[in-house]
Each structure stands twice: as structure tokens, then as C-alpha cells.
Simulated assay, not measured.
Amino acid sequence: MKVVVIGGTGLIGSKLVARLDEHGHEAVAAAPGTGVDTLTGEGLAEVLRGASVVVDVSNSPSFEDEAVLEFFRTSTGNLVKAAAQAGVTHHVALSVVGTERLQESGYFRAKQAQEELIKGSGIPYSIVHATQFFEFMKGITAAATEGGTVRLAPVGIQPIASDDVAAAVGRTAAGEPLGGVLEIAGPDVFQLDELVREALTAENDPRTVVADPKAPYFGAVLQETTLLPGPGARIAETRFTDWVARQQ
């Protein structure tokens, strides 16, 4: 089965392509660096020729409100049009747990727009909602830093390893379209501020973490369960402490 992975050279995409290849599928990494640009449509018709499945794990290069909305609207619009013309029978997209609850954020409004375009395309689809990747915790910390202070809401977070995300997306791509959303998360729930505080302490980082219930998360105010998956989520195996130990 030919599977085209949009964003196939990135963190998740490269892992996904490798996994699909290992399981005997013809996985094709599609990205600007391989001659495929979803923003302009360049190379889409060619790379999708003969494909049964397209998986979109791409991300916007900018998180600025207008830019990220333009990215997901344009790229997804071009992708669903090209996929329909190519006869693709399964469109898989990676999104984020809590997207529908984070609409104060321009980024998550853009992700919601992406999902709506996929649902309305007429192509059978599956949307995978993942919690925050272990690898993104430093980015979350940086976004919440002002001077030497990191302000984070004391809310639940259940992060997941990128390897486990790639595995779940791969299984979804190889299966029948869900016609809905699958949530995936790591095995352990933490308090966001406490997790970052412990990570900074372990790295001898002098920044101070302040628990602030009103601290914005990429522009949105969090409630206790905003970032947590609901009942029925698929729980991955990799624990954060084990992942950290492997990084060191």
C-alpha cells in the first residue's frame, strides 16, 4: 500500500515513514525538501498518484495567528483537493488533544479549521489527537518564560513520546478510516508547573517556575482538564522518566 506522509521529514514524519516501511508499505516522505509544497500545490498530484492513504503530520512554520490559520487552510485545502483527484481512500491527520477546548488560541483555531476541512472533504478520514510530546516540553517552557520566571497554570498534563505518536499514527494509517477522532496519551498525569519545575531543577536551570492559574498557554487560559484526554483514549507505554533517562 502506498502511503504519502505530508511533513514526512519532520520529527513525527520521519519516524512514521520508517515504521511504515518496516511493515511493508510504500511510504513516501513529502515535504518542501522533497519537492512537495502543500502551500503552493507543487508536486502534490505527482506524489499522490497511486496512493491509497495520505497522512498529514505537517506543521506551520509560524505560530502567529494569521500566518498559522493561512497555513492550515491553504495547505489542507490543496491537499484534500489533490487527494480527491488522485482517488485517495483514507486521509489521516495528526492534531492535538484539547483542540476544541483551546479556541482562544490562534494556533488551535487553525488546527480546528484544518480538521473541519478534512471532515468536509468527502474522503474517509481519521484524526489522531495526541497530547503534548515529551520533546515539546522545552518549547512550552520557553513560551511561558519572561525574564527568569516561567509562569504556568497548575493543571493536568499527560505527555507522550514522539515514538509512541508515530506508532499510533502508523497503525491508524494501516487500518480502516475511523470517521472520527482517536485520542492518544502517555501513561502518566503530571501537574504542568511541577513537571517543568522538576525538569529545570534536574538541568540546573536557574529559572523560577510560578504556578499561575491565569497563565496563558499559547494564548488560551487552561482549566484543570483542558490538556487531558477523555475516556477511551489509547494509552502509550513510554514513561516520561524513562525517556528522560535515555536522553541523558
Rank of each mutant, 00 (worst) to 15 (best):
L152Y: 06
S126E: 01
T141H: 11
T99S: 10
V96Q: 15
I160S: 06
T208K: 15
V80K: 05
I184Y: 08
H25P: 09
A199C: 08
E198K: 15
T74L: 00
P32W: 01
E70N: 14
Y125R: 12
G7V: 00
L69P: 03
A67P: 13
M137F: 13
I140C: 00
E100G: 09
S58K: 08
D164S: 11
A83W: 03
V196K: 10
I12M: 07
Q247W: 12
V155Y: 11
F63M: 13
T201C: 13
D205H: 12
E100T: 11
V54A: 05
F136Y: 11
G156M: 05
K111V: 03
P124L: 00
T89V: 12
G35E: 00
A202I: 08
H25Y: 09
R246M: 10
V221M: 05
G41F: 02
T34D: 04
H91W: 11
E183D: 10
P231R: 00
A143H: 13
G13V: 08
A142E: 15
S58R: 07
V47I: 08
A45V: 09
A220K: 06
P213N: 08
D212N: 07
K81F: 01
E198F: 14
A215V: 03
Q191M: 15
L117H: 03
D21I: 10
E104T: 07
S58F: 04
A18M: 09
K15Y: 01
A215R: 06
V57S: 07
T208N: 12
V165R: 11
G122E: 00
L117G: 01
H23R: 15
T34V: 04
N78A: 02
P213G: 07
I12F: 07
P231T: 02
F218T: 10
T74V: 02
I160L: 05
K138F: 13
Y107E: 00
V5M: 01
I12D: 06
G219H: 03
G50I: 00
S126P: 00
G41L: 02
A220F: 05
M1R: 13
S95M: 06
D242Y: 10
L117C: 04
Q112L: 15
T76A: 03
T172V: 12
T172H: 09
V28S: 11
V4A: 02
E70T: 15
L11E: 11
A67Q: 15
P213M: 05
L178K: 10
T74Y: 02
E26V: 15
A45W: 09
I127A: 03
E42V: 11
S121H: 01
V55F: 05
R19K: 12
L178F: 02
I160Q: 06
A173N: 04
F134M: 09
G170H: 06
E46N: 14
L11K: 12
A174P: 09
A18Q: 14
E42S: 12
R207M: 04
Y107K: 04
F136T: 06
G120E: 08
G179D: 05
V210N: 10
D164F: 05
S75I: 03
A167T: 13
A51C: 06
G219A: 05
L222E: 04
V210W: 09
G106M: 05
L39P: 13
G170R: 07
T76H: 09
